[in-house]
Design a protein around this nucleic acid. Structure first.
Lengths: 409, 409
DNA sequence: CCGCTTTGTTCACCGCGCGCACAAAGCGAG
DNA sequence: CTCGCTTTGTGCGCGCGGTGAACAAAGCGG
């Protein structure tokens, strides 16, 4: 063996950043691409041409609008709507979802979800991949990767799901490896033509945060904190400068066990009054004196309760206020530690924010240390299926880092 | 105006990374520099030659030891002990300290500390800078920057000290601007010859963490969490992939108000049982039934109490165990949120770790969620004046990012 | 219609880093 | 001691990505 190079020096170095700018909608024209990349117009032009040649973006010489603009109208850059896609999938307590997602976070095709609960991850993943393959065949799109969102912490770098309890899967299931295996069996290809796709897999809240950061309410944030509930428990995620912060072993932002009520109910973690058990859908139903239904409908039930009973029904109102106060306490703690410049809430937390935004913001402002931190914007998540789009982001990432991957041998 | 370039394309791009490798001791020879940079030997040689020409590193053709090594012995790369220095300073409750620090974190010269407490930051900073200038004149070294460590959160990007209470300074004092002003008045130069130095300033715990990461117990850590006490209160810091994480406005890692004892004593933050008031030196003295002395000696007093009374004195032992349990709870919470791969403790926390490491590690392992997180190494900080060295790191950073700065017009 | 402004493109040039050659410096076997 | 063997250091030609400055193009307004 002669010489091992870590940087294979593949092509233009500005190619990846340029594609990311178009992908996130921050480079609508070659002119702003030039400015954002900090290169000359010549280089930006060459880069755009190369991306166009790869079939990733389109250049439209006829701009629709040019109202009052000075000088020569610029050509419009956009993600190629007919370009390659990735297979994005999400498994959750209610079943799974599969879709094809193009650049720009656009969902190209969706498979009808399946509602079965199956304790065997391999069977589920086979179904997921089969649904994706069916979409690929029907649409005839080229696939350049696959990503999976899982309602569990995923350990890095192994890619094992540590607590997929809502899925009835065994703890420690090697979801990434299993997903990759199913993809290989089904012949799903990755960025490089012909080569099998890697099985990207990560936690669903993390992926939702990533999607919100790139295409949703988190756009432009430097340090984005997301907190969301499913049916049970609370998840968190942090996006730092555009990259997901998963910690050294993928277990960061396990925010469920922050203490938000010293006198609260006991938690399986050994403490009491944890965010997990004090602000999830079950906690709302409990506080409002409602009988909880089956686990896989808790979020629905709590949501409906809020929609119909807030602020009219005093029991619902008091229960919501209680949860908002506790959530605010937990968020204030996180703000003190992470100092994000934006906070996005999902699941029931989003509904709590919608119900009484002033109260939540007031609690956070009061309990976070410095006035300025208290002014951190708290927003509702804005993407329909942000975990799914986030799974697609994961799959797109290698191409976003090096677009030439999709044409290599 | 013609064209604005963001990247001035100054020289070799690998120059900065190479200097950082030598600076942190990760590139003792040209051979490993080649491997670490991922370039060819030719390029690494050219880079080393350029850094040598800048007077930043030395190349020693005669290696001292070559025991049992195969092949041609490699030349040794090292930081130039006679190279430029930065002015590093630290202000604290007991006064201030000033020093000259070269590359590699080596303290070249130290000024005798001054123990005065002065409510006027400008007077203090003038003294600090005067002490530094005296050192520069005495040693005749070239100064390429200045950094200051402050026992207060420093807001970004303003550079104001939000709560310099231990210094009796007014909250919100613009330390960075004041420091820069004093430096300019004294004629202290920055990286570019002739140009005045920027006044780099940051929180002391943050800077201590940075120093530990580059030259101390944190070397090689990907995600390093540091927690330390002064005389009162608790500070935290996080180093992510070699860069300090200060959050979006410099207020990250305000860990003092994590709840570690729901029934604990009230804190000025409005809650009770905060890490701040439950694990600082005053808390130990209180728990052991000792009368606290003056504020500026609390750390000393608590340290001595532990050294002499642990584990012999039952009151001291119980008090220490209590603090260890609470500290462990707080650290477990932080580990759950940040998932670091190493934790370093300073101040009284370091002494608590020394006193009973097993107990502390057991608490963290028990309360952090996943077994693997519980195995995160918890170490004592290892540098004598880590805040001072960290202040120097801050000042060196521009040069580490672009070594050619020190020769530009 | 001609300036003005901004955008896109062409082209010569330049410097960084590669790849390869060869030299240098130790070690060990014969 | 000499001859391989291994690893490290260096000189040289070259490719290529990006610059910079030209020119062309495309609207707008007087």
């Amino acid at each position: 063996m002669t010489h091992h190079r870590t940087r294979p020096d593949r092509g233009r170095s500005a190619l990846g950043p340029a594609l990311q700018l178009v992908h996130t909608g921050r480079a609508p024209t070659r002119a702003v691409l030039t400015a954002e990349l900090g290169v000359t117009r010549a280089t930006a032009g060459a880069v755009a041409a190369e991306l166009q040649g790869l079939g990733l973006i389109t250049v439209d010489a006829r701009p629709a609008v040019a109202a009052g603009a000075q000088g020569r109208p610029s050509h419009r850059l956009a993600v190629d709507p007919g370009g390659p896609v990735v297979l994005a999938a999400q498994v959750h307590a209610d079943g799974f979802r599969a879709a094809l997602v193009g650049l720009g976070g656009t969902v190209v095709a969706t498979a009808p979800g399946c509602g079965d609960v199956d304790p065997d991850p391999v069977r589920v993943l086979r179904q997921v991949v089969a649904a994706g393959v069916e979409l690929l065949e029907r649409t005839g799109r080229r696939c350049v990767g696959a990503g999976l969102a899982v309602p569990s912490a995923v350990a890095e770098p192994e890619g094992t799901a540590l607590n997929p309890l809502h899925l009835a899967w065994p703890p420690g299931a090697p979801v990434r490896a299993l997903f990759a295996e199913c993809l290989a069996d089904a012949g799903v290809t990755g960025p490089a033509p012909g080569a099998p796709a890697l099985g990207h897999a990560a936690n669903d809240v993390n992926l939702g945060a990533l999607a919100e950061h790139r295409h949703g309410a988190g756009r432009g944030a430097q340090h984005l904190l997301c907190v969301a509930t499913g049916h049970r428990g609370v998840g968190g995620a942090l996006v730092l400068r555009g990259r997901l912060h998963t910690g050294s072993s993928g277990l960061a932002l396990e925010v469920g066990h922050l203490t938000v009520d010293p006198q609260g109910r006991p938690c399986h973690c050994g403490s009491r009054g944890c965010l997990d058990v004090e602000t999830d859908p079950l906690a709302l139903l409990d506080a409002a004196g409602r009988e909880p239904g089956p686990e896989s409908s808790l979020l629905h039930q709590a949501r409906e309760l809020l929609r119909t009973g807030f602020p009219g029904d005093p029991a619902v109102r008091d229960a919501a206020h209680l949860l908002i106060d506790r959530l605010g306490l937990g968020l204030a703690g996180l703000v003190n530690i992470l100092n994000p410049d934006r906070v996005i809430l999902g699941g029931l937390h989003r509904e709590l924010l919608r119900a009484d935004p002033e109260r939540l913001r007031a609690v956070i402002a009061e309990r976070s240390l410095w006035g300025r931190s208290g002014e951190v914007p708290v927003l509702a998540c804005s993407l329909e299926h942000n975990s799914l789009v986030g799974a697609a982001e994961l799959a797109w990432q290698p191409v976003l880092d090096d677009p030439l991957l999709i044409q290599e041998v």
